[in-house]
Write a protein that binds this DNA or RNA. Structure first.
Lengths: 197, 197, 197, 197
DNA sequence: AATGAATGAGCATTCATTCAT
DNA sequence: GATGAATGAATGCTCATTCAT
C-alpha cells in the first residue's frame, strides 16, 4: 500500500496547493481540500495531523531553503557596485526558486497569513535592504550623497519586492516574466544613487 | 448622562485596534475585544451597533480623508512629469489625517479583508496607474519610449502605494514623514520616462 | 410622592398596553415600554418585578372577572331555548366587558401567547360549547336531530368566538360593533337546529 | 453511505415537530431540537441547512398541497350556492395531505409566525372571502338581500377556516373528518343567503 | 428614587477535528 | 485503512434583568 498512500498524499497536497493559493492559509477549508483530493475529510487527518501540519509540509522545505538562500545572500560580500546588480543578484536567485517551486513559493510569500511563515516576505526585504545599505554606502560616500533616513532604502526594498512578486504572479511565460523583472530592476535601480543628488 | 462614557468607548476602540491589528477584520473576535476592554460582550453593542460599525468608526475617517486626498491629488494636471512641484501638496494633505494614523492606517490597508474597505489599496493603485498611463503617454510618445507591456506601470503604481503606506505608518513626526514621501516621489518618478530609453 | 408614583405607574401601564397590543406578550420589548412611558428601563422594574408581572397586573383583574363571568354563565340554567339566544347572552356579557376594558380584553384574548393566560379564549369557547350542548339537547331530541359527533358544536362555538373578536377588534364605533355581532349571531345561530335536519 | 441516516433525520424531525408545536417557529430553539433528537447541535446542520429549511421541509409539503387544494376548490364554479355538491370534492382533496397532517398542519397554521408561511391562514381567508363575495353577489341581488357591511363575509370566511382546521386537526380517521367537514359546510353555508333576509 | 450602563445567558450558525463503523 | 457522521467550541448578536451611581 506504500504506492497508493503516496498517490493519495500527493492528491491531498495538490488539492491543498490549489486551495491555499485560492484562499490563503487561514481561509482554506479542510473539507474543500479533502473533496478536491477525492477522499474523505477523515482521511486527510491520516496523512496530516491537522491543517497546520498540512500547510507546513507543503511549505516548510521551500521555506527552509529559501531562508538559507537569504542567509547566503547576506554573506555575499561587495561583489557588486550598483543597486541594479544587487537587486538582480537577489531576484535571479528568487527566480531560480520560483522555477522550481512555483505555486508553493507564491503561497509562502502571499498566502501564509495566520501561519508561522507569515513573516517570510519581510525577511527577504530585510536582506535586500541590508545589501542595499551596505553596498551603496561607499558609493553614496563617494558621490557625496547623504540620506536623511536610511529607512527610505527599506521602503524601496519592500516595494521592489512587492512589485517583483506581482510580476511573478502575473506571468506564466517564464521569458516574459524575466523581461518584466528586468525592466522593473531598471525602473527601480538604474542610476539609483543619482536620484539622491 | 446623555452620552455614553467616553472612557469606555476609548477602551473598546483601543481593544478593537489591538484585535483588528492582530487578527484582521474577519478573524477579530468581538468577545476578545470586549474582554480586553474589560467589559461584557453585550456592552460593546451599546457603543457600536455591530462589528462592522465598530470597524468602520475606527477606520472610516482615515479612509475618507485619505481617498479624497488621493483623488484631489491626481486630478491636479501635470502631476507626474513634475513630481517635485507636487510633493509639497501631497505632504500637506497627509497632515490632515495624520493624528490618528498609526495602527488605523495599517488596519485599513492591510487588515480590512472581509469589510467594505478590502479593496481600498487596489482602488488607489488603479487610480495612480490610470494617471501614470494618461500623463506619461504623451511624454513617452515624444521621447520615443515604447513599453513592452503597460503592466509595468501598474506594478510601479502598486509598489509606490506600498512604499507610501510604509512611510505613513512609520513616522509620527509629520515633517519627517513629508520629507520621506518627498524622497520616495523622487526615487520613483524623477525623470521617470528616461528609465525606459 | 404617592401621587407621582401613581402617575408613572399609569404611564407604564399605558405604554405597556400599547406595546402588548402591537406585538403581543412575547414579542413586546421592555425597553420600548419604558421609552414610551418616558422613563428609564431600570425604573420599570421598580414598579413591576419583571415583564411577566407587568403583564399580569394589567391583565389579571380582567382575567379574573372574565373567568368568573364565564363561570356564572355556566350556571345560568335553561332560560333560553334558542341557540341565537344562548350566544347572545354570552356575547352581551362579553360586550359589557369590552365596553369597560377594551384594549385589555383584546390583549387577554389574542395577545397573551407565552403568558399564563394564553388559554382564556379556549375557556370561553368551552363555555359556549357547554351551553350549546346542554340547551340544544332537548331541542335536538324534540326535532329528531341526531349529531354524529358533538365536536361540531365545539367547532361552531370556537369559530363563532373567533368571528366575534374579529368584529370587536375591527370596529371602534360601538353601535356598528353591536350591529355586526347581531348579524353574526343570525348567520351562525338562526334556526340552527334546522341545519342538521 | 451515500445518504444520511434516515433514523437520525426522523429523530430531528420528531424533535423539531415537538419544539415547533410547543414554542412556534420563532421561539423554537435549534439547541433544544438537537438535544431532544439526542445529537450535537452541529449535526442538525448536516441534515438541514438552517432553521428555516428544517421548518420548511416539515411544513412545505403540507403547505403546497393544501394551498393548491384550496385554490382548485374555489375555481370550481357555483360552489357556494350548492355547498352539498362540493362537500365530497373537498373531503376527497383533504385525503391527499392527510397522512402527515396532525402536528404539522397545526404548526403551519398556528405556529409559523416569523417564517414565510405566517400569512397562510389569512391568504386562505381572503381567497374564500373573495369567492363568497363574487358568487353570493348575484344571489343576494336576486333575492333582494343587502349587506350593511361586507366585512361580515370576511368574518364568516375567517371563522369557517378556523373551524375547518379544528376538524382537520382533530380527527385521525379520514371518513369521520370528511363527515365533519361536510357538516360544517352545511352549518355555515346551507341556504346562506336566506339568513340575511 | 431614578437612571441607564453593564451584564450574561441565550440565540443560530460554522468548521477543524475526532471516532465508530 | 478509509469513511463521513458527529462533535462542540467558537462566532456575532439580542434583550430581560440588575446594580452602581
Amino acid at each position: 500500500m506504500q504506492y497508493l498512500k503516496e498517490e493519495i498524499r500527493n492528491n491531498i497536497i495538490a488539492a491543498a496547493l490549489e486551495e491555499f493559493t485560492k484562499k490563503g492559509y487561514q481561509d482554506a477549508s479542510m473539507r474543500v481540500i479533502a473533496s478536491n483530493a477525492g477522499i474523505a475529510i477523515g482521511s486527510v487527518y491520516r496523512y496530516f495531523k491537522n491543517k497546520d501540519e498540512l500547510f507546513n509540509s507543503i511549505v516548510d522545505p521551500i521555506y527552509t531553503s529559501f531562508t538559507s538562500m537569504i542567509l547566503e545572500l547576506y554573506q555575499t560580500e561587495g561583489v557588486i557596485s550598483r543597486m541594479h546588480s544587487i537587486a538582480k543578484e537577489i531576484t535571479d536567485k528568487v527566480m531560480e526558486f520560483y522555477e522550481e517551486h512555483e505555486a508553493i513559493l507564491l503561497i509562502l510569500i502571499d498566502k501564509s497569513k495566520g501561519s508561522k511563515y507569515e513573516n517570510i516576505k519581510e525577511e527577504l526585504i530585510r536582506l535586500l535592504n541590508y545589501r542595499l545599505k551596505n553596498e551603496l554606502g561607499p558609493i553614496f560616500k563617494e558621490t557625496g550623497v547623504k540620506l536623511q533616513d536610511e529607512y527610505i532604502l527599506y521602503v524601496v526594498a519592500a516595494s521592489f519586492i512587492e512589485g517583483f512578486f506581482m510580476i511573478i504572479n502575473k506571468y506564466k511565460n517564464l521569458s516574459m516574466m524575466k523581461e518584466m523583472i528586468n525592466q522593473l530592476l531598471i525602473v527601480y535601480f538604474d542610476d539609483f544613487h543619482k536620484r539622491f543628488q
